[in-house]
Design a protein around this nucleic acid. Structure first.
Length: 494
RNA sequence: GUCCCCAUCGUCUAGUCAGGUCCAGGACAUCGGCCUUUCACGCCGACAACACCGGUUCAAAUCCGGUUGGGGACGCCA
């Protein structure tokens, strides 16, 4: 049994988007499952559209997701001599021929066919040129491209798709496609096959948009006398209007980078992506990395395309609600120490990180994260909604400010009074802080909720949060007292 | 226009290959309820789908044919 070898060959013409990420993930999973290798190959033969920035974006994106590769990145342009040699072989063996039709001519024909609603294929005018004619045109300096000569056969051309099953089409339906440009540069269909042969790729898992390419490439493998790899075409990811997802028409929301920048947990996002078009055949939705590698299978990939369910300008969900749901799940259930590492990066970016959180205050740090994470959706929430736990420099939300504080001007004396009592407490415990607050409320003949909600507001800036006295202990006596005493400042602003 | 592919709740899907256990199960979202000093979490419940038409069969979401709908491809892009 030979080693399985897979590849992820993005063209560096934009950032890594979720469709590409899903393709990379499925290839990665299959490689890991079979103990094979994953090759990263940058297909940069379209020099006009390829950019270094894009290459970096793709590599960073894979890195963030944790999709590692065993070989590469290789660059397709580094193998141009291989591609040209292959085209020569095809030319000499008669599997390909020179075509002298000009681009303008072809474009005109295509447009005419489109307008007339006729088939758009190449009319094969140069297919049967004699040696003399070819030489004459060459001598005359007429530019030519190299076209693959689709065999003149009656039967069906086909292959067994791991996902879709047997795929077939009549030879007569396939165009004599161009494999080398008139400037001598080989094209994708050829380069891709030559590289896959050289890289000894055994399984090609790619988007359904390549299905017609595959039919053509099957002939290329045959002409190049190379064994055919196993193909599997993944249904595309569509938007809610069922249009193919692309960076161009959908913007940031489909870029992997968006999820990194918005506080998503890498594995949560992989898990979401994996379930977008695949299921284990049961009700399981959450998979650890090991489980997913073990349970993943090409055969269970759904044949119909999945919709990435995000709604533009939705006030409640910045992206597909299910993606957020997966993120929340991991946020709440992952090992707290691991979460601690991730939140650390967020705190550092906001200048809120303190070294003691990794040493003498480590227990406090992790306990605090455990206390507040239940209500959060992304890693970003720790520095926004949870800012008051790490800094005095937090914003008090206007809604609770109006509702819980400004509505009761007497709080300007009540809260400082509570602060004074907290200062006097012999033991600053859950029971003692709650008792003190309730006693004060009773003395004042007000509902404890008034005091408690006001506390929550000035201490955390938020309308909602964990149990108030857990908060008090987490934030600590000194800070709580200071914030309670400072309540007057909110009234002055009005 | 031609070719290829697909079709179960709003979304992701189980069930389809081996027809009956499915008047279709789970999850997200939505809506209600419980819990609660708040808000979440959690728990409980509700809403909600086999695209359509024919055929085969004692029996069809499942098999066959057609229709419709959707997607993809048809580049000297990848």
């Amino acid at each position: 049994m030979t080693e399985t070898r897979l590849r992820f060959p993005p063209s560096p013409t934009g950032y890594l988007h979720i469709g590409g990420a899903r393709t990379a993930l499925y290839n990665w999973l299959y490689a890991k499952q079979t103990g094979g290798k994953l090759v990263l190959r940058i297909e940069d033969t379209d020099t006009g559209r390829s950019s270094a920035e894009s290459i970096k974006g793709i590599i960073d994106g894979l890195d963030w997701l944790g999709i590692d590769y065993d070989e590469g990145p290789y660059f397709q342009t580094d193998f141009e001599t291989d591609h040209i040699a292959a085209s020569q072989r095809l030319l000499t063996s008669g599997a390909a021929y020179k075509c002298f039709c000009s681009k303008e001519e072809l474009d005109a024909k295509r447009e005419a066919a489109l307008a007339a609603k006729k088939p758009l294929g190449y009319d094969r005018s140069c297919r049967n040129l004699s040696t003399e004619e070819i030489t004459a045109k060459d001598v005359a300096g007429i530019p030519s491209v190299v076209r693959f000569k689709v065999p003149d056969r009656n039967g069906l051309l086909g292959y067994d798709d791991k996902i879709f099953g047997r795929i077939e089409a009549a030879y007569s339906e396939i165009d004599d496609f161009v494999i080398v440009r008139s400037n001598g540069k080989p094209l994708y269909l050829l380069c891709n096959v030559v590289d896959d042969i050289r890289d000894r790729i055994t399984h090609i898992i790619r988007g359904q948009d390549h299905m017609t390419n595959t039919l053509k490439q099957v002939m290329l493998y045959e002409a190049l006398k190379a064994p055919l790899p196993i193909f599997g075409h993944m249904p595309l990811t569509l938007d809610t209007k069922k249009a193919k997802i692309s960076k161009r028409s959908h913007g940031e929301i489909v870029a992997v980078q968006f999820y990194r920048d918005n506080g998503f947990i890498p594995w949560a996002f992989n898990n979401f992506l994996a379930l977008l078009g695949w299921s284990a055949g049961n009700d399981q939705e959450f998979f650890s990395k090991e489980e997913l590698i073990r349970d993943f299978s090409l055969e269970r990939i759904n044949k119909s395309s999945a919709i990435f369910n995000y709604k533009k300008d939705d006030p409640k969900f910045i992206t597909d609600p299910k993606a957020i749901y997966f993120n929340e799940h991991y946020l709440r259930t992952m090992a707290i120490s691991e979460l601690g590492q991730m939140v650390r990066k967020e705190l550092e970016a906001e200048n809120l990180w303190q070294e003691c959180y990794a040493s003498d205050r480590k227990v406090w740090y992790l306990d605090t994260l455990a206390l507040i994470r239940d209500r959060f959706h992304t890693l970003k929430d720790f520095t926004s909604l949870g800012r008051a736990y790490f800094s005095d420099n937090f914003i008090v939300d206007s809604k609770p400010l109006d509702k819980n504080v400004l509505k009761f001007p007497e709080l300007q004396t009540w809260l400082p009074e509570l602060a004074a009592r907290y200062e006097m407490l012999a033991e600053f415990t859950l029971e003692a802080t709650e008792k003190a607050a309730r006693e004060l409320a009773e003395e004042l003949a007000i509902k404890p909720g008034i005091l408690i909600n006001a506390m929550r507001t000035v201490v955390t800036g938020q309308l909602a949060g964990p149990s108030m006295f857990d908060i008090v202990l987490a934030i600590g006596r000194e800070t709580v007292v200071r914030r309670l005493r400072d309540v007057g400042k909110y009234f002055k602003l009005v």
